[in-house]
């Protein structure tokens, strides 16, 4: 048990303290992934909150052995993907919204005017291009290059072979370069 990371150690010790560790260690990657998948600040908050809540409820039912074996980051992102896909399915039953007319609120409310103006030239533009990628390419690019996951972990989260992850990433990047005119 000595080789366990602090998150799993804390989860084994006390579920609530363990959750605080889990949240502290992975809040950035979960929220960034949620934001770049959904493209909306409010949706990202809902997605990330729901992910952590479901994770907590799941781990409350796990025995010590299962917690000790838990790969917390891909496990959390798998939960996020499941929620995202389920709500995507629910949305696809309704008529699709016209993306060009919907206001996109990707701006962090804490951000100052200058910072936000600066980011609009970089972040928002690129985030907008991400939204134009086919779903499987966007997922792969976001997990690989925004959330900085290794290919093997992305394969686990998306439940596809590593080779497929690589090809989705490279096709996604190629498309982004074409769309954005980035060399």
């Amino acid at each position: 048990m000595d080789c366990l990371d602090p998150v799993r150690k804390a989860l084994l010790d006390d579920l609530d303290e363990g959750f605080a560790e889990l949240y502290g260690a992975h809040r950035g990657v979960v929220f960034s992934t949620a934001l770049r998948l959904s493209g909306r600040w409010a949706d990202a908050e809902d997605l990330a909150a729901e992910t952590f809540l479901r994770a907590y409820r799941a781990v409350a039912g796990y025995d010590a052995e299962r917690i000790a074996a838990l790969q917390t980051r891909p496990w959390l992102l798998t939960i996020l993907m499941n929620i995202w896909r389920n709500c995507g399915r629910a949305k696809s039953r309704k008529p699709p919204p016209d993306l060009r007319e919907e206001p996109v609120d990707t701006v962090d409310p804490r951000e100052g005017v200058e910072e936000s103006a600066l980011r609009r030239e970089t972040g928002d533009e690129l985030a907008g291009l991400l939204a134009l990628l086919p779903e499987e390419q966007r997922l792969a690019v976001v997990l690989r290059h925004v959330s900085d996951l290794p290919v093997s972990e992305i394969a686990t989260v998306l439940r596809i072979p590593e080779g497929t992850v690589k090809s989705h990433v490279s096709r996604g990047l190629k498309r982004l370069r074409t769309l954005g005119g980035v060399r």
């Binding site: 809040r27 950035g28 990657v29 979960v30 929220f31 960034s32 934001l35 770049r36 990202a44 908050e45 990330a48 909150a49 962090d108 409310p109 804490r110 970089t122 972040g123 690129l126 985030a127 991400l130 690019v141 290059h145 925004v146 959330s147 900085d148 990047l173 982004l176 370069r177 954005g180 980035v182």
Partner: peptide
């Protein structure tokens, strides 16, 4: 492009 993608990572709001 990769540097800009990495720059899309953000911290969640305090209230989350």
């Amino acid at each position: 492009l990769l540097a800009r993608l990495a720059g899309l990572a953000v911290e969640p709001p305090d209230g989350l």
